[in-house]
Structure formats: structure tokens, C-alpha cells
Amino acid sequence: MLGRFDYQRPSTLPEAGRLLAGNDGPAAVLAGGTDLLVDIRGRRHDPRILVDIKRIDALRRLDVDSAGALTIGAAVPLNEIIERAAIRRTLPGLVQAAESIATYQLRNRATAVGNLCNASPAADMAPILLALGADLMAWSPHGERTMPLSSLFVGVKKTCLAADEIATELRILAPEPGLRSGFLKQQRLRGHDLAVSSAAGTYAPSTGVLRLAVGSCAPTPLLLEPIEVGRSSKAVVEEKAVRAVQAAMRPISDTRASADYRRAVLPVLVKRLVADLLAEGGAP
């Protein structure tokens, strides 16, 4: 057995809220479980009650409206995002990030919102969603709030969510026409791995704005200041982006990589990503 805890499967948010707020000790929200159950098994986390949100219909939404605005419910597994043709078409960067996570089997369980709420500096969904300017909706018995995703992360494995608060969905505004997006991740091997470093970005030719975010190089994923591409040459923009990343990153050494390697490889990812995004006829 993984541990001793109670399991509840509410079908509404208020019911889930009551369970989370109950007085039977620490509670945890269970979505895909691919981080939570591993932590419980390793005794890094010892909740008394798991509140499974996968049967709450409101959290199973994966909608793309006619303009391309996207809503990703907290119970939507990554493979659903990956397999949705409309998303593959409009936001390839989001799909690339999702596809880089773990294995096919785990992506049938793991959710995008769960990946964010686990608040790992290496969360692969974070950079692209930051670059896309995603908002996160959170619900609690005291009300609902919307926050920019960047405010979710407060430290390594720490979010701003309250104990009785449930992240319910991600909202991404309709992309500017022709928006390009991309995600690059450095791993130790081609097979499933956590990111040594990652970079994601969007570029809207219509506005000339380049947005970049990076992962695994600071206690939280980092959204960089937008870059006005204007009439600058690709080399100049690349250089600007690389300098911005170098100024912002605070990498550590761990079992996956040394700070030196992260410092060396992240600018490479950023440079390549920018080159892809700015390329004439680059993937939308």
C-alpha cells in the first residue's frame, strides 16, 4: 500500500471544498497522481485524505473556442491536450511541452494543472503557459479567483494556493493571428527525463512581440520581459534574448546537472528557440 489515507471522489466543487476543509488532518487534491502518489510512496508527503477531482465534470473541460481561446480543466490528462487537433494546429509549443513530459502511460494520467501545482522548477508545462500568458482559476469555499500563472509559483514545490483552494482550470486567450510557439528541453537522454533546462516562447508576427520563459534554472519557472522584435535582425534578437536569460537565471547543481552546464546550455536552447520562432515561414 502507498500509505494510509482516506479517499473521496466528489462530483462537485463545493463537495470537494468541504472535504479539503475537513478537520481530519492534511488533505491533498488528487488529479493524475503521478507526482502526488510518488511523493506519498516516498513519504515526502503524508496526507490523511485524498480528494480525487477527476469526476468533477466542470474540471474535465478541454475547450477551444472559435477564436482559439483555450480552457484546460484541472482533470484533463496531457494526452487529451496532445491529441486535440485544434491545439496541435494553433499552439504547437504547448503540445511539444506536453509531449516532453514523462511517458505515454503517465500522460494518460498526468494533468497540465497538476504539473503546475506540483511547482517543480522543472515543470515542463510552466514555461510555455507563462509565455502564453495563461491565467489559472482557483476555487475555494470563499470564492473563485483568477491569477496570472506567474503568481502561482512562490518557491521550489511551493504555490500560493491555500489549503482549501483547488486550481480548477487554465485559460489562455485566443492567440494573435499567426502566433508561433515553441518549446525546447534539454534532457540527459532522449527517453523520458526531467528537464535539465527548458525554454518556451511565442512570437506574434502581427505585433512583433517575442515572449520567452525558461525552466529548471531558478527556484521557479521564469517569465522574461517581452522583447519587441521590430526591425531588429535575428542575430540581434537572439543576442538580446540570451542576455535576458543569462541575467535572470540562477541555476543550481544537482544530480541532473551542474549549474555550469545549465548556464551553458540554456542560452543555446533560447537561441535555437528564438531562431525557430523568427524563421520566415516558421511553424505557426
Binding site: R188, L189, R190, G191, H192, D193, L194, T255, R256
Partner: peptide, 16 residues
């Protein structure tokens, strides 16, 4: 030992 699991002790996969 810092890497006693498949998270940080990697062996080749079908992609490798």
C-alpha cells in the same frame, strides 16, 4: 548515494 532510482539513474529507452 544520490541517484538510487529511475528518476535520476537513467538507462537507455527505446528512444535512445
Amino acid at each position: 548515494l544520490l541517484n538510487p532510482s529511475f528518476v535520476d539513474y537513467k538507462i537507455p529507452t527505446a528512444k535512445d
